[in-house]
Design a protein around this nucleic acid. Sequence first.
DNA 1: TACATGCTTCGGTTACGATCGAACTATGCA
DNA 2: TGCATAGTTCGATCGTAACCGAAGCATGTA
Lengths: 228, 228
Amino acid sequence: MKEGPDIAQIGALIGDPARANMLTALMGGKALTATELAAAGGITVQTASTHLAKLEAGQLLAQRKQGRHRYFTLADDAVGKLLENIMGFAAGRGHLRHQPGPKEPALRKARICYDHLAGDFGVRMLDSLVAKGAIDAIGDGLALTGKGESTLKCIGIDVGDLKASRRPLCRSCLDWSERRAHLAGSLGKALLSNFFDKGWARRTAGSRSVIFSPDGERQFLALFPIGA
Amino acid sequence: MKEGPDIAQIGALIGDPARANMLTALMGGKALTATELAAAGGITVQTASTHLAKLEAGQLLAQRKQGRHRYFTLADDAVGKLLENIMGFAAGRGHLRHQPGPKEPALRKARICYDHLAGDFGVRMLDSLVAKGAIDAIGDGLALTGKGESTLKCIGIDVGDLKASRRPLCRSCLDWSERRAHLAGSLGKALLSNFFDKGWARRTAGSRSVIFSPDGERQFLALFPIGA
DNA sequence: TACATGCTTCGGTTACGATCGAACTATGCA
DNA sequence: TGCATAGTTCGATCGTAACCGAAGCATGTA
């Protein structure tokens, strides 16, 4: 006993339903205020405030004051990755929420996983990029190829800029709904914001799901065909 | 709120210190009895029994009756992977146990991570195999090469047998002490038991740490040189 | 059959933490 | 200066779950 890192502490932080709901809400990638997070957790602001203080002390959250608002985000993408990991595990055990709510299908189709695209569409995109030879894959590892670099340039993404950052370019992230990998990393992030910029898709207000416009969906599917 | 899988449930399961200690003890890979786990958790058997029932209901543990003993193990290697994940995260935030105990250095040098070798030695082994061209690595992904297959045959491991199983041959696992990857998967398991069989190393009684004999350590270091 | 060991179930206690109302601080706006 | 909004801190309540002693099963051994 008493060996190694303290997993109980972060388990306990995630283990409270209200906190778990707030963290899940922050997986949407947007910074949220304490009041918004209180609503997400289904609790009053006072209670939320103490929860947020604990999460911040545990280094799961970061906050930034702006005027009289206090915006909270996940501390970094390691937190997002951890949460998605646990979600994948929980989903694999059938520890789903009681009933598959009405928003469930949209969530499975396309959603934000911290800062990149997940769900059916996210998995499809990665599959297509691999099939095309734009990305090399060995198991969980992903690497952009030279061909991939030029493919992305056509879409409107300059990989050179991304390479400058410390963050890895390609990362695989296990998708809890599809139970397969989708593309994370700075490239995953760039692709998603590219879709937003082009107007192919938009975020939804209180949810992590991503809505594609009819035209956006058509173009997305054409750009990332299955089995080619 | 109420989106996606129920992370709070498994967070809560891991979040109790007694349960976390029991789970950590089971990361040693050995099946343990309820009494042993009670000791690991620092609680009485009665209390341990209720904890174990909860963990089993949550599908984190599996048990197997044998005579009047009841042996508990982690339900599968997904659980082990999850726990190591969380450990890595916790260690990265400095959420270490209060003081680095006396056993800490041994643990950092070589320990069991569910069923394969971790710690400094585990990381070194993977590095060496990659440097040698026995394993291809792209990011987190690992794949055994043809050359690697014959290398392993010399060590005394028949890869053909391992390939028959459903479990992936090579998997990378983030090492919480080294913060780099070591080798998991059925190959990682096979290598560790190979070391045990040869008498190079042995488990310790109440701990996850692996003790190499002087001769075993010499041979290990020669077999897996750094930077070659 | 009797007894020991391993574990579970029951009952009752206790402690911790989640919760909210109310009061307080801070920022912004008029 | 006064008022509104955002958030924290305080105090008190309440519920749950961790905990252990004691009793109850189950299995093995003499």
